[in-house]
Design a protein around this nucleic acid. Structure first.
Lengths: 353, 353
DNA sequence: GTGAAAGCGCTAACAG
DNA sequence: CTGTTAGCGCTTTCAC
């Protein structure tokens, strides 16, 4: 924002103005090398650069050094409220370390390979991958090519690439034990798509948590996606199943839980009186829906931040030992969960049993 | 994803493998110039490129051509649900035209100039700016420097840069006339920060809409930001003002409306019985809060898409004539608005008046 | 239609 | 400490 700078002033112009050689300018302007330059020359060069409005050309230095100070981020859907905070964490880390972030919305997994190709053509220094799937061919590809990459939110089950994730088993344990402590015994699960790691991780966590208390699921239905509509369909399926209706429902995600709300309401059932419901993610506004949703809160921003930090460390040669970082989720209790109603036609027992 | 490509294979390697000169390879691989090459050479070159796993180095072509096929996007807060759809639109347009998008979260306007500097150093071909403020020094700077830039969501009041925005006056007119048609006469406004264009545009739109019906605002309070907490504070202020309580409230934004909900509830007032409330943006889940929010829906994704298209056209020399594109918002009626209660101590009149 | 040659702006040996 | 030199990979005149 200093004065009316015309256009392309190069290191050569600065050198000329300062009366030194271009390489001296290069060194003077490079924080890592300015120690090699005498104080007075430094002054002159900086003054000249300032005065001319010099702005280094990263494309040129990239060509020479092979480093662009640029990373790519792959997300499945920016519009899903889980990702903006993750992105924010990544971006904050990048900004702090002088990197820029390409964001690509990879709506269809089939589009991932060409997008990655284009990113590599852009010479990105590394990738943060939030679109990992089970048996994803992209993962071994990245590993084999030696491309710096870190996964976020979804882990790499084959362990080839480092990842930063939330503890899905713990999350499910928290939800299940909360419901158990309320007195529920017939607990069902609306599971995430089994093609993505979080989908299976949470389902297994759910089942394990019940097993730890010698209980079995009162139903598990897989959702086609992590969306409200998919949640509604899954809920419909669950309610149509034979046998006693579950007392409580653990959902793989808040949107799915809200879809379950939709279906329950349309069938004349009330949350939490007729069924307790829990979500996962604690996305914005789930505290304002009716009833406010009991859910699991994830440190999304930190997920992104940590993943980016790992990536930069790797890029810059400070490779860590820890290959997978697991962050702790936490239970947030709201009004969508309560003790089950007393069994009908048996008198109103206390909460004893 | 084709075979175990080692690392840096260049145009030179392809030329050698194909038995032609590098410039021939360059031409053959450039869609705009392949017409200059004979069919058979084309085959050979493409086969060689394929076989060797050649991937063009954009940093090199950028250095040569001055074009990076890269744009920068400046948003104030990725986490605000307004921006992800805008970003999605931008990204979709970019992907379709072979560009990548740097996303920078500019939390503090003071940080904008250095971020823009860094983006220009990265040789971005242009900028989409969603952080314009009133009297923003960045705008004349961009214009003066001849940097390709398009504003989204917030307009440039000085008209120096093209912009794609929603029609804020129309939005307010829709909200106000909806409330008038319900029978409200004492209508107040929680206004957005007057430092940003949307804040003043909506306030003016609100006032104008009332004036068109020979009415005056029943109160206008400015929020410190577009947040729920700021909405709550503003609501508190409005309720503390002397005079009769407004019957209806037009909010600058959904989050602010939800903050108003918070405060109304804590003062024992009910929406919509005691006060009708409208929002703006129709962000996800406002249809699920209690009561579901009447609001104005904006074509956010299209806002982003159009802005990006304008930018690319400008970059590629197809400059448009239209400098500002104004998109139409639409009213979405839900349960937070209803006819005012009959005046107390006057009997229960019908909805006649 | 294809080759030759120069050079985009910068950095990194290698002298001195 | 500073100057010299070469060249990163690609595109683009200019010849032929």
């Amino acid at each position: 924002m200093t004065g009316p700078t015309p256009s392309t002033v190069t290191i050569r112009d600065v050198a000329q103005a300062a009366g030194v050689h271009v390489s001296t300018v290069s060194r003077a302007l490079n924080p890592a090398k300015r120690g090699l330059i005498s104080e007075e020359v430094l002054q002159v060069v900086e003054a000249a650069a300032q005065r001319l409005g010099y702005r280094p050309n990263r494309a040129a230095s990239a060509l020479r050094t092979g480093r662009t100070h640029t990373i790519g981020v792959l997300v499945p859907d920016i519009t899903n409220p889980v990702f903006p905070p993750i992105l924010q964490g990544i971006e904050a880390s990048a900004a702090a370390r002088g990197y820029f972030v390409f964001v690509a919305n990879v709506a269809d997994p089939a589009l991932a390979p060409p997008i990655v190709e284009r990113m590599l053509a852009q010479q990105v220094d590394g990738l943060v991958n939030a679109i990992a799937r089970r048996d994803d061919p992209l993962l071994p590809y990245l590993a084999r090519m030696g491309i710096h990459a870190v996964l976020v939110n979804r882990a790499d089950e084959s362990g080839q690439l480092p990842a930063v994730v939330s503890d899905d088993r713990l999350a499910m344990k928290l939800a299940v034990e909360h419901l158990l402590s309320l007195g529920h015994r017939r607990i069902a699960h609306l599971a995430g798509p089994q093609g993505v790691p979080t989908g299976v991780g949470r389902r297994q966590g759910f089942e394990q948590a019940l097993r730890d208390h010698d209980l079995a699921p009162a139903g598990v239905v897989e959702c086609e996606s992590y969306s409200r509509e998919a949640g509604r369909m899954a809920m419909r399926k669950l309610l149509a199943a034979p046998g006693r209706r579950p007392q409580a429902l653990v959902c793989c995600n808040d949107l799915v839980a809200l879809g379950a709300y939709d279906e329950l309401r349309s069938q004349g059932l009330k949350v939490p009186q007729d069924m307790s419901v829990t979500g996962h993610n604690d996305m914005p506004l789930v505290d304002m829906v009716e009833p406010p949703l009991t859910t699991i809160r994830l440190p999304h921003r930190e997920l992104g931040w940590r993943a980016a930090e790992m990536l930069f460390d790797e890029i810059e040669g400070r490779s860590l030992s820890a290959s997978t970082v697991v962050l702790r989720p936490e239970l947030v209790v709201r009004a969508s969960t309560q003790a089950p109603a007393a069994p009908p036609a048996r008198g109103r027992a206390g909460s004893g049993q």
